[in-house]
Every structure is written in structure tokens, then in C-alpha cells.
Simulated scan of single mutants.
Amino acid sequence: MLLLLCASSIILFFLIPIYKTSLVLFSSMLTLVFFSIIFVDIKSLYYGELLYLYIAIEAAFFVQRHSFYIILGVYTIFSVITLFIHDSLTIESVLAVGFMSALLYLLWRKIGERAELFFVHNEVILEYRQLKRKALENESMARLEERTRISREIHDSVGHKLTAVLMQLEMMSMEVNDPRLVTIKKEVRDSLEEIRLAVRTLNQDEAAGLTSVLQLIRKLETESHISINFTTKHGILSAKLSNDQSIVLYRVLQEALTNAMRYAASREVMVTLGRTAVGHFHINIQNRINNAQPFQPGFGLQNMRERLDEIGGSVQAYQTEGFFIVDASFPLKGDGL
């Protein structure tokens, strides 16, 4: 029987790390030890009691509240029955079992409090990182949107007016032979060139959309513990995007990935960037779902659709067997925009 006790200890040593939260495992091990030690001599009885205690301590670290109450009850009952069978049931032994049960309960409470504090601490850190990331992203996008607005206003207002002035000067020079008109036209042309240079400078981060996409994916993977399978096709990373297109691309991916994190059945998302058959920029985001159920487009999808409409694009969201898919596209600058 002593050999059976040793074998039980070895089995316990290897199985507990594998099935850490199994109430059945801990209860089974206590039962196995119980039937092993009720037939051994009094010397081996104390080893069995220590093995009881070891199993209960392991359970305190791994099982949930109701499961631990059951383990604690089984430990106390088996200990008392074992002492009774071996005619060792005295007031002192009963008090010792009760004292050990109380210590086990206090140990479990302390472990639970520390685990809760650790969980809350991790949640606060994660929330802080997400808020910090969103603040930085919003600041970057706000700067990009403001630069786009300023460059558009310069181009559409000042640039067009100077072009109109230059055309009028050209017409005047045909009617009036005045050398001063040549100087004025040169000044206007120089001003137009300076405006074009200023607009190009404001739009010098045209490929920022693709760069920000990579940054977004990297941050979501590290901070939200999701796995993003990012695939590019047809040399799409070399595509030239305007600021408007960069902003829309970023916002569409941000919204789709956020929804995937919130509703997906797994922590894996597949993102594919490429070109359509007609050369448009193509975005495809897929995440697994348990059961395909009818859904109503929410604010996020409506926001994506409005943004893509502004640049001549479109978006579709639909379900297949096991997947939720967001499929969007928009024409590039050389596609006739």
C-alpha cells in the first residue's frame, strides 16, 4: 500500500500542472489517497495526511471558489474518517484537522485577493495603453486631416483665383502691348508655383496611410493580444495614396479590427490589401464567428460606408460559414479620380 501511495504522488505531480482547474482531478486524487491509506499502518498514515494537505494546497492555487469549498470539505471529511479508522480520532487530532482546514481557507482567500489585484492591475495597464494609443492615433489623424483641409483650401481658393488672374492678364497682353504686363504675369506664375510647392509639402506624407496601417496592426497585436495575419498583394505597398485616401484606409481598418476584437470567436483576424480586377485599392478583413446570424449594420459600418463614399469607394459586410467579412475598395489617384 505504501508503494501505491508513492505511485499516487508521482501521478499527482505530473497531472496537476496539466489539469490545473479540474475539480474532478483533485477530488479523484483525494479519493485515491484515501483508499490507499485506510489499509496501511499508523506510520504511513501520517504520510497520507501530508498528501491530503498537499492536494488541498494545490487546489487552493488553481480551483475556483465553489470547487475549493468542495475540496476543503472532502479534505476535512477524509482526514477525520482516516483518523477514525486507525483509532487515532482524538480531540487533539480533530482540532489539528480543523486548524489545517482553517489555514487552507485563509490561504485560499489570500491567493484569491492577490489574483484579483493582479487581474485589476493588468486591466488598468491595458486600458491605459489603449487610451494612450488612441490619443496618439487621433492626434496624428487630426494633424493629417487639418493639413489636407488647408492644402485643399489653398489649392481651391488661392490657386484658382491666381489662375483666373493669369488668364485675364494673358487676354490683356493680347489687347495691350504693355511691358509691365510681362512682369506681372511672371509674378503671378511664380506665386502659382509657390502655392503648388506649398500644397506638395503639405501632402508629402501621401503614403502615410500604409505606414499608419502597419503601426496600427503592430499596436493592436501587442496591446490587445490578437493575432493579425497581414497579407499584401500585387505590389500594393507601393501604391500612391492621397491624404484623403490614407485617412479613409486607416479609419476603415481601425473600425473593422475593433469590431473583430469585440465580436470575433477567436483572437485571430486576417487582413488582406491588394487590387481589384479594375485596379482599385482592395481591403479585405475576415474573422471567425461561431454561428452565422442575421445582423443589422451598426454605426461603425455606416461610418465606413460614408467615408468610402467621399473618395468614390464602397464597402460590403457579410457572413459566410464560420467567417464575418468586411470587403471594401476605392479607386486610386490614377484610376480616374
Rank of each mutant, 00 (worst) to 15 (best):
residue 278 V to F: 08
residue 293 Q to Y: 10
residue 255 E to I: 12
residue 279 G to P: 03
residue 271 V to H: 10
residue 292 A to V: 07
residue 293 Q to N: 09
residue 293 Q to K: 15
residue 293 Q to G: 04
residue 303 N to H: 13
residue 268 E to R: 07
residue 263 Y to W: 11
residue 275 R to M: 07
residue 273 L to C: 06
residue 290 N to R: 15
residue 261 M to G: 05
residue 279 G to S: 05
residue 258 T to E: 12
residue 280 H to G: 00
residue 253 L to D: 08
residue 300 G to Y: 10
residue 256 A to Y: 09
residue 250 Y to N: 11
residue 266 S to K: 14
residue 300 G to P: 03
residue 289 I to T: 06
residue 256 A to D: 06
residue 264 A to G: 08
residue 285 I to A: 06
residue 268 E to S: 12
residue 303 N to R: 13
residue 295 F to N: 01
residue 269 V to F: 01
residue 251 R to S: 11
residue 291 N to C: 12
residue 291 N to E: 13
residue 251 R to E: 11
residue 302 Q to I: 06
residue 297 P to S: 07
residue 277 A to F: 03
residue 278 V to G: 01
residue 291 N to Q: 14
residue 272 T to I: 07
residue 252 V to I: 11
residue 243 N to M: 14
residue 254 Q to I: 00
residue 260 A to M: 05
residue 249 L to N: 12
residue 248 V to D: 02
residue 288 R to Y: 07
residue 254 Q to L: 13
residue 292 A to Y: 06
residue 250 Y to R: 09
residue 257 L to F: 13
residue 247 I to Q: 03
residue 288 R to G: 05
residue 302 Q to G: 05
residue 246 S to C: 07
residue 252 V to S: 15
residue 244 D to Q: 10
residue 243 N to G: 15
residue 262 R to C: 00
residue 276 T to F: 07
residue 253 L to H: 04
residue 279 G to L: 02
residue 300 G to H: 09
residue 280 H to S: 08
residue 246 S to F: 10
residue 301 L to N: 00
residue 287 N to P: 04
residue 267 R to L: 05
residue 263 Y to K: 08
residue 295 F to I: 12
residue 276 T to Y: 07
residue 282 H to N: 10
residue 264 A to E: 07
residue 255 E to L: 10
residue 285 I to H: 02
residue 270 M to H: 11
residue 251 R to D: 05
residue 273 L to H: 08
residue 247 I to G: 00
residue 270 M to L: 09
residue 286 Q to K: 15
residue 288 R to M: 12
residue 268 E to N: 12
residue 258 T to C: 01
residue 295 F to W: 13
residue 298 G to W: 07
